[in-house]
Design a protein around this nucleic acid. Structure first.
Length: 594
RNA sequence: GGCCCCGUAGUUCAAUGGAUAGAACGAGCGUUUCCUAAACGCUAAAUCCAGGUUCGAUUCCUGGCGGGGCUACCA
């Protein structure tokens, strides 16, 4: 920011003094100078050719001359076509390095300073089967965006709305009751969510068989699906559940308990957490009264068959049913109710973010529009953090076709790959078994998390289980490795100086690193504004890559000039702090040794 | 059919309307008596097609082609 406000001011002055034209900041296009040219920042001069009636080169030359003559911080310039490349002084960069970037928590604003409170909902699993690769993207994204928002001084409430009721839950319950023989996680040694998932699959299998039999007995497929005895039983079970039947509720509680134990393990392995848990068994009744209010306000209307609907065709959407003709809720009814409930529960809430896949883009458009029509002015602060699907080489994951990549299995594979690679490289003598286990976890989950978060959340991504995830190149372990090397240097250096001597002249790579450090706060800001962790992931990679080149080309500890050596130690420290903090925002830990 | 998203090296990903479109993996070549070679360097390799707006388009607009998603009184 420092350099930008300095340059913006200087450029405004130059334009006014040289050409008598006044521009505001938004009319100044300032970008970082590309590597192949000399300079730190580049002003695009094309926009001024009309007002000045001169060529872009002439404008660049005149401005460059004025700037270097009138500002001691601007030392050099060169003009290439419509681009004026400006160099800031060694003193400027060293001054920034000594005062601005050497503070702790550089780039972070203190929590609460923005005065904004945000609820961010993510994860929101169903309790009928274990988590898979798609959930992993959701969890990593939600967690990371929450952490990134905190860096801007916002208070963030991480919320999880668990879908713990409904027909799909009853399917697992019924199958367990019929075929389970009392099997439990303890008796089978199976993780609770996987055990329940097994019965969900078992239900589906048995149900399909019944359908087949009915179809061969002369029914149509649709009739068979509705009349299959298992389906009738499941519906009966759901009715009992809603009526509070003790036996059904007990079974439901027991099996959901198994699932929660399983999820807790997966969440802990993934390193995600929540401040607030919501359960649909508590919230599914919400929203009905709101529908009545909406009817009174004429936002909704009653159809001939008794159902309640809203017409959104004027906004380019369709008619949407908000209450069935039998008076029961549809999914969006609950969503309307829970949103309103949350703003009542947290009156200080400024924003509500939903981390949900882009297949529900339409649903959220409708939801937000309805809230707006109901007159809630916070409706415009609701945001759908919509992310792309994770696809396999053969296409979308389909649980029925068994192409789902299980979260726990995948994480285990990552850990064992990390173990294998670490053993092959053989650099971990002196580690205890416990430390090794932690290291494999750090590297394995780091690889997976970085892999998923480096991609723009909005875009769909491809995951190829066969090729697995790399540990070299643009990856989490590459960044972790760089961090570990720096820690090794720092511990050998012993003392970390508080400031670099003002007489030091920065070389090209040192200067490049300091310029990257300078960018960090604005990367955090941008990333928060765009709800996009990939900006941080790619920035940290760029910093790491530049550091590795510096590390390769120059020695830190063997540098003979003591003042330069001190500066390099400090530089290494600042880079490693940013690597650590930045990775932490992605939910990734960094090891001191690997 | 209607609505929404996406098409960038062989592959996976980058690029607030700006310079010669960047990385990584894979391919080929090279670097270690030197702070950790999970590293560093070099070579080959891409904007789906056709128009338009602009001083300037991978980016914005229109049309085509190709891929995905949504379009329930399901969740």
């Amino acid at each position: 920011m420092l350099a930008h406000s300095l340059l913006n001011k200087a450029i405004q002055e130059a334009l006014s003094k040289v050409y008598s034209i006044s521009v505001n900041e938004s009319e100044i296009t300032l970008q970082k100078t590309r590597k192949e040219f000399e300079g730190d920042f580049t002003l695009v001069t094309f926009p001024y050719i009309k007002a000045t009636k001169q060529s872009p080169e002439q404008v660049g030359d005149a401005l460059g001359k004025f700037l270097t003559e009138n500002n001691k911080n601007i030392t050099k310039y060169n003009v290439v076509k419509g681009f004026l490349n400006l160099s800031l002084s060694n003193d400027f960069w060293l001054g920034f390095f000594n005062s601005e970037s050497s503070v702790s928590n550089y780039g972070f604003k203190k929590e609460g300073t923005s005065g904004k409170t945000i609820m961010l909902e993510y994860s929101s699993p169903n309790t009928n089967k274990p988590l898979h690769l798609g959930h992993i993207r959701n969890n990593l994204l939600g967690y990371s965006v929450a952490e990134i928002l905190k860096t801007q001084g916002h208070k963030v409430i991480k919320a999880n709305l668990v879908n713990d009721r409904g027909v799909h839950i009853c399917k697992s319950m019924l199958a367990w009751k019929k075929f389970g023989n009392g099997e439990t996680p303890q008796s089978s040694g199976m993780k609770g969510d996987h055990l329940v998932g097994k019965y969900y699959v078992a239900f589906d299998k048995a149900y399909k068989k019944e359908i087949e039999e009915l179809v061969s007995g002369g029914k149509t497929k649709e009739e068979a699906e509705k009349q299959a005895p298992l389906m009738l039983e499941v519906q009966e079970m759901l009715r009992k559940w809603e009526a509070g039947d003790k036996e059904t509720i007990d079974l439901w509680k027991m099996m959901n308990g198994w699932v929660y134990d399983g999820f807790a393990k997966t969440y802990s392995t993934l390193g995600v957490n929540f401040d607030k848990m919501y359960y649909e068994s508590n919230t599914y009744v919400l929203g009905k009264e709101i529908i009545q209010e909406g009817l009174a306000k004429k936002v909704f209307y009653k159809k001939d068959n008794g159902s309640v609907a809203i017409d959104l065709s004027a906004e380019g959407l369709d008619e949407k049913i908000v209450l069935r003709s039998d008076g029961t809720s549809v999914y969006i009814t609950q969503d309307i109710g829970t949103a309103i409930e949350r703003f009542k529960e947290f009156p200080q809430l400024n924003q509500l973010i939903y981390t949900v896949g882009n297949e529900q883009d339409y649903h959220f458009k409708v939801l937000f529009k309805i809230l707006e029509k109901l007159g809630y002015n916070w409706a415009k602060e609701c945001y759908h953090l919509s992310y792309g699907m994770v696809e396999l080489p053969e296409g979308k994951m389909k649980s029925r076709e068994g192409t789902v990549v299980d979260a726990d299995d995948l994480l285990d594979e990552m850990f064992s790959t990390a173990e294998q690679t670490t053993k092959e490289l053989g650099k971990v003598e002196g580690f205890s078994d416990e430390e090794l286990k932690t290291l494999y976890h750090t590297i394995g989950s780091g690889a997976l998390k970085y892999f998923m978060l480096k991609v723009d959340p909005k875009k769909k991504m491809l995951f190829d289980p066969k090729e697995s995830i790399d540990f070299n190149g643009h990856t989490g372990p590459f960044i972790q490795y760089t961090y570990a090397r720096i820690q090794s240097v720092l511990s050998k250096a012993g003392h970390i100086p508080a400031a670099a001597d003002a007489s030091v002249t920065l070389n090209e790579l040192e200067r490049e690193l300091i310029k990257l450090i300078y960018e960090y706060p604005s990367v955090l800001e941008e990333s928060a504004k765009a709800y996009n962790p990939s900006l941080i992931a790619n920035y940290v990679y760029e910093l790491t890559k530049s550091f590795n080149r510096f590390y390769h080309d120059y020695s830190i500890l063997k540098e003979e000039n003591e003042k330069v050596k001190q500066m390099r130690v400090m530089l290494a420290k600042q880079c490693s702090d940013i690597i650590k903090n930045g990775m932490k925002l992605l939910g990734i830990e960094v090891p001191n040794r690997m």
